[in-house]
Write a protein that binds this DNA or RNA. Sequence first.
DNA 1: GCCGTTTTCGGCCCGACTGTTTTCAGTCG
Length: 583
Amino acid sequence: MSANAELAAIFAEMASVLQITGQSPFRVNAHARVARILGALTSDVAEHAPTPESLTAIAGIGKGSAAKILEYLETGRVAEHQELLKKIPGGLLDLLGIQGLGPKTIRLLWQQAGVTDLATLQAGIDSGELEHLPRLGPKAIANISRAIEFARKAGGRTRLGAAMTIAQGILAHLRGVKGTSRLEYAGSLRRGAETIGDIDILAATADPDPLRHAFERMPGVQQILAAGPTRLSLRHAAGIQIDLRIVAERSFGAAWMYFTGSKQHNVQMRERAIKRKMRLNEYGLFPDDGRCEEPPQERGVEPVAGDTEAEVFAALGLPMIPPEIREDLGELELAKTPRLIEQRDIKSELHAHTVASDGRLSIDQLAREAMSRGFHTVAVTDHSAASAQANGLSADRLRRHIAEVRRADRLIDGISILAGAEVDILADGRLDYTDDLLRELDIVVASPHIALRQEPAVATKRLLRAIRHPLVNILGHPTGRMINRREGLSPDIAALVQAARECDVALEINANDIRLDLRDIHIKSALAGGALLAINTDAHAAEHFDYLRYGILTARRGWLTPDRCINTWSSEKLHRWLRKAAS
DNA sequence: GCCGTTTTCGGCCCGACTGTTTTCAGTCG
């Protein structure tokens, strides 16, 4: 783990302990915010010999946190963190993850019933002794019990692609309900986060009842968690919570903005409204008339904006900020939003497999699928020999495969088919094919598949060696991580970026939603460091081309503009770039 | 704990819903 990630974990843990021990919520927030900031930094906090001044220059980090960061960099620990951990049983921190259990209740359970972890909580529920605690009746206990069961079964956050599929199904189901004029997904799903905690759906209708009934009775509903007039919340058999919020059409923009978040972005937006003598909530942006006893929408105050998100942003003097970058990471300081990459900008697929290795498509089928997506170029990049589990190609098989690709390229009009390979980066950084063989290819994607538990320094050296190989064009899924399955490598991204820029190698954003590698903050680092990026689906089947949307969402989260992505280039520019690398 | 075109002290976003409550605390997003 990088210093940034370790420090982020320390601050997050401190926030949790402070919460359970009943400290000021503002102090808790301050720690949580520092954790978030550190986790999203694009450069290593240990670099450039940080000083108290350089650290407090970062918004949200004050003198106290700066001192703790420096203490960690010097000694490898934060004394106050260690002290805090002694104050409560470690198992209590796990309980914060259970839906419906907050810090106050956890403290109550601990101090008055001796609950110290998940096991003692479960025992307390089973024995019935918790029901005698103040504010905890049979219903509350039953809810906690079901939440534990759900957390155990669901096993954490849902992958972006899986959540998107569920959300589309629900939208399709609700779209048929009469009177519903608008229906959209929001939340972290709309922001394109790599994993989704719950699916947020927003609807506008003049007649909420039919919609509420349709939502509660749709297939897969396991438990209704809340069902008010405008907000419903339920658990779905797919192992994810789904929230529906119903608003009037005139509030849709403000509500969509609120429901899309992120939470921290919303806080910043509302504070900005206050500074401008206005008040922002999910019903609209209202002039502040100084009366705060009742919210403005309930007093018939005419909103300044609210129909559309663009209106609300404009009324606050902001450009339309794309959902993917609403993370309170500097987006409100923009005078003009960068033109982020879009799916229609993509004109080539440069990493795809055929039946020659572990794909399901022939060369011909792959080419026609790419053509149907409007691409001018597709690269056939089957696995190299070391990937035996993926039926990787020996040198002889690759030579015959190249000939077949060239033949297909001659026979099929309308797209250029490149002969390439996804060549394994061996544990020491050597490539799995000889230079003579690599020289016969139009494009080389070099990727790590084995030895993915290497120490960061070893991994960095290994990947740098691959980037510096003169015949490599793209570094494929650089960390090899698989979401919810394996962590992958943690190389020094800044070092990879610098080498990639010097060697004119593109770093891949693998669009398969189990990979999404590089991830958003790495993309930001790559942009800051001047490296090129590629967005590839790593298709093994026709439908895998659909992964592109997840690659695009991730790229946008990294603020990627089309010019820096080689897949947006014209055929001429792309092929010139590839030839230049070969010469 | 952090921050400052009203502030170096006194603020710190805003609303929906539930359960155990006779008026609201806790949780969530």
